[in-house]
Design a protein around this nucleic acid. Structure first.
Lengths: 169, 169
DNA sequence: CAGTATCCTCGAGGATACTG
DNA sequence: CAGTATCCTCGAGGATACTG
């Protein structure tokens, strides 16, 4: 199964991954979140080759995650910014940052390499999950996944197809 | 720059990506979050080949994200579960799910294919960011990134090295 | 059921050079 | 500064077969 097929899954995680589930893509998006928007700067700060960077930016533009704007006429110069769709990836970045900082810290007492601060009060922000129904904060252990009908059916179909294929060998 | 080097960055996002920044890895982790823990089921539900699945599971085990437990002696049978480190990836999954559901919905009025429900009250949970200092909920626009000294220095070094390399051509 | 062993393909991406 | 154009490598992963 290639990723064009995964793209078709009913699972929103799979569909998200089909667009942004790639190391370089995510690293480039990180830079765009930081406010880097020039090609050369993106190249320097991510370490990607120009070829790779151009490819990824083109794909991100096609997917509506990144907008390319011409900021100079002659010579033509472009800058890259996040669209609203791209900005909506912030929770993904933030979650990756928190996990990386917690489980892959370089030293036990390292200063936070990256924090998100509340622009109005300057305090660093941490993520929290609040149950909108009972108002309680919930930890991972309090949560369980629940499937919609379509996705549940897709899963059953996958399992059956796989078993049938195995039997036929 | 290969990903072994990115792994060395001061950026927690980059270090997280070096471990889990891969489509298949993330898709397999999704399944583990759903409670799938047998090899064949993982294969069927992700669509990965056995070779690919074995490779990814081995890597995830080495990275301490997944634990392999023998649940049968003869023949030896293993099952895969998330370690605490792996379970901590839940916000990443959840953020991907929300983004995928919002921006890559298959129809405008589709039922949610996947939700996280609060185990104690059964209500679906959404993520919210609360500023721990002022107690206000904040949206993406209220937040800005702030770099630690090490990461800031690394970024300056990258920019300078890149410019020097360009000049020398 | 849960993989391992081989072989082979093919395409992503690096290197290098060039451009307005 | 912001890329495009080519060429070429090499390694990820598919296909197939096999195993306790």
């Amino acid at each position: 199964m290639g990723w064009d097929e995964v793209d078709d899954s009913a699972c929103p995680v799979a569909r998200a991954l089909a667009v942004v589930g790639d190391r370089w893509t995510l690293l480039i998006l990180r830079e765009l979140f930081f406010g880097t928007h020039r090609f050369d700067d993106l190249q320097a700060l991510t370490g990607a080759s120009s070829h790779l960077l151009a490819t990824r930016l083109r794909r991100l533009e096609e997917d509506g995650v990144v907008a390319r704007r011409q900021y100079n006429d002659r010579p033509p110069r472009y800058e890259y910014t996040l669209t609203p769709k791209g900005r909506d990836l912030q929770p993904v970045m933030f979650a990756l940052r928190s996990w990386g900082a917690k489980w892959h810290a370089r030293s036990s007492k390292e200063e936070p390499a990256l924090s998100l601060v509340h622009a109005s009060c300057g305090a660093p922000v941490e993520a929290a999950m609040i149950c909108p129904s009972c108002g309680e904060p919930c930890t991972n252990a309090d949560l369980r996944a629940s499937f919609g009908k379509t996705f549940a059916a897709e899963r059953r179909a996958r399992l059956e197809a796989f078993q049938a294929r195995k039997r036929s060998d």
